[in-house]
């Protein structure tokens, strides 16, 4: 086997290891998948009636009626919840990476002749599977409570592609964050801002309803173009060049995080 074949085979072995962990100890998966579903239900059923009336005509172009209230808000909030789902999944990534790094098994991997990237690749692939499951579940619940996306096959491909890209970027970021800390406790707190960022963007309310400086931040932070693009693809709102911005942000975060994570892995001192 050549080097690439080894990398693929080692990464597959590490992915199997991650999937086994998930199957055997599903609590972490249940929490990171459960949280966005609870958020979705809270936002739609507790806040949705009021929020929907406040959206105005621009908020939900595809809504069935102007006075749609809750259902208009459901349509508005789903893209934000999808991004929040990714943010929740990557909390788990940081925790499981930190747990791995503080245990002795990774020290063993380092003394073995295996592809250096494979330990981290295993985590990334495992989290991608988790993210796909979580997103599918959240979308499923959304459809169940009345979400009706207008997307055609091409738009769906775009939705899946962007969600995958965003997950990939944030997972690598959290792989790095999981290694930068010395304890599992810290690792579970550091990615917290990622959950909050969709709020300070166009995740739950349109950015033009926010006061000056906050609005400026909300409009330019990376989650906003991602959410706007998803919203456009799913419900037919216009998103201009947000699509390009979203892909660019994801690519930037992914590359920078990958480089950072690999450096940390090489340098990480043993315990």
């Amino acid at each position: 086997m050549n080097a690439i074949a080894y990398t693929v085979s080692d990464s597959a072995t590490m992915l199997r290891r991650q999937l086994r962990h998930m199957l055997r100890y599903p609590s972490l998966t249940v929490i990171v998948v459960g949280m966005p579903i609870v958020f979705l239900l809270l936002f739609v059923y507790v806040l949705g009636g009021t929020m929907g009336s406040g959206l105005g005509p621009s908020g939900a172009a595809g809504a069935s009626g102007a006075a749609g209230g809750r259902s208009a808000y459901l349509e508005y909030v789903v893209p934000g919840m999808l991004v929040m789902t990714i943010a929740a999944v990557v909390q788990g990534t940081a925790i499981s990476v930190a747990m791995d790094m503080t245990g002795g098994i990774v020290a063993r991997f380092r003394t073995m002749s295996i592809s250096r990237a494979s330990v981290l690749t295993g985590h990334v692939l495992g989290s991608m599977v988790q993210a796909a499951l979580a997103i599918a579940l959240v979308l499923g619940v959304a459809v169940l409570i009345g979400f009706r996306p207008t997307a055609g096959p091409v738009e769906w491909l775009g939705v899946i592609g962007l969600l995958a890209l965003a997950s990939f970027a944030l997972i690598w970021l959290c792989v790095a964050l999981g290694m930068v800390t010395d304890s599992v406790e810290t690792a579970s707190n550091i990615p917290m801002p990622l959950i909050l960022l969709p709020f300070v963007g166009s995740g739950v309310v349109p950015t033009d309803s926010m006061p000056g400086p906050l609005r400026l931040f909300a409009e330019y932070q990376p989650f906003t173009p991602i959410i706007e693009t998803l919203r456009g693809l799913l419900t037919g709102t216009s998103f201009g060049n947000d699509g390009i911005l979203a892909v660019a942000w994801c690519a930037l975060v992914a590359v920078a995080s990958y480089v950072w994570a690999m450096r940390l892995y090489e340098r990480h001192s043993v315990h």
Binding site: R17, R20, H21, R24, Y25, G103, G104, I105, A107, R108, T111, S113, H271
Partner: peptide, 16 residues
């Protein structure tokens, strides 16, 4: 490729 190491701290995967 030539060595095997058993360190001072347990290097097993406790979840498996």
């Amino acid at each position: 490729a030539a060595i095997g190491v058993t360190g001072q701290f347990s290097a097993v995967d406790k979840f498996l």
